[in-house]
Design a binder for these strands. Structure first.
Lengths: 159, 159
DNA sequence: TATTGTTATACTCTATAACTATA
DNA sequence: TATAGTTATAGAGTATAACAATA
């Protein structure tokens, strides 16, 4: 307990919260801010974060399978169906038969898909440049490196 | 395009993805890992991240209103109803009439609520200590500071 | 036996819009 | 007019379980 009655406004006391000392809480709050700005940046393109991520992988690894994309993104492969449907509806990719494995629908980006990926990547670059304008290159690299270590489950200071 | 055909496994190529250079993507992936571990840590307690956050604020600011908690957490106040209902059902708090403003239901933590908060905070401390065991105190502080700057929309390198 | 794509399904999170009581 | 609590509702996001075809 800190004060009684409650503080007058959220900002008055935000810095005193024990929540603010938790990495998980700060991660979540920061993520919400970035996702919100991402959405604004993708407004014209209409790509969700997941759709962009999938398109990005498919553009860089033509003929990859849905399951492979799912593994790279760390999501269940069942969720890839709707995303693939969406990207196919936009004519950003085609499902093509795989010669080597008849279970697989190889995902082939179209020219429109490659172009959309390039456009999106540029817009996201601008969005991150704007959002992190005050972060030095070192700070940005440090942030990414720390986040990568969390993702990889590695605890060692120097990966 | 990097390779054709697709790489053999997700891990082979993960480091080459352009996604890996994006802060937003890394933020999301790291957040998923931490949230997953948080859930495991809260298994016995049965508290969702949001329920814990709300309980934490209410425990530290007795008699705070739902709307005030919502503002602190950065979520819409409509979402607070279900969380408050849940915490009240667990007998972790009571809705009490506010003397000063009859619109407000002041949220009063019970002894059980304070105890649950203390237990949860301890378990979360252990969960974060485990998850970030290999991060130096400096690295943890740096991470939190960088995340805070994102949340606050401040771009300046030093607070 | 294991994996791919797929469907059905369900659950969580969260926002918007509207209502009422009150300020 | 504005705010508090509330309800109804809807849309993401994502997981689990199952199935047929194929490996």
């Amino acid at each position: 307990m800190k004060t009684d009655p409650a503080p007058r406004s959220a900002e008055d006391s935000a810095d005193a919260l024990s929540l603010d000392g938790l990495i998980g809480y700060n991660l979540k709050r920061a993520y919400v801010v970035v996702r919100e700005d991402f959405r604004r940046a993708m407004e014209d393109e209409g790509l969700s974060p997941r759709a962009f991520s999938a398109l990005s992988i498919i553009a860089e690894y033509p003929n990859i399978s849905q399951s492979e994309v799912a593994r790279m993104l760390g999501v269940d492969r069942s969720g890839m169906v709707a995303i693939t449907d969406d990207l196919e509806r936009r004519a950003y990719l085609r499902r093509t038969a795989s010669a080597r494995d008849r279970r697989v629908q190889a995902l082939m980006p179209t020219a429109a898909g490659q172009a959309a990926h390039a456009r999106a990547l540029r817009k996201i670059g601008e969005h991150e440049a704007r959002l992190f304008a005050g972060f030095t290159p070192d700070e940005q690299a440090t942030l990414i490196a720390l986040l990568r270590r969390i993702r990889d489950g590695r605890s060692e200071p120097e990966g």
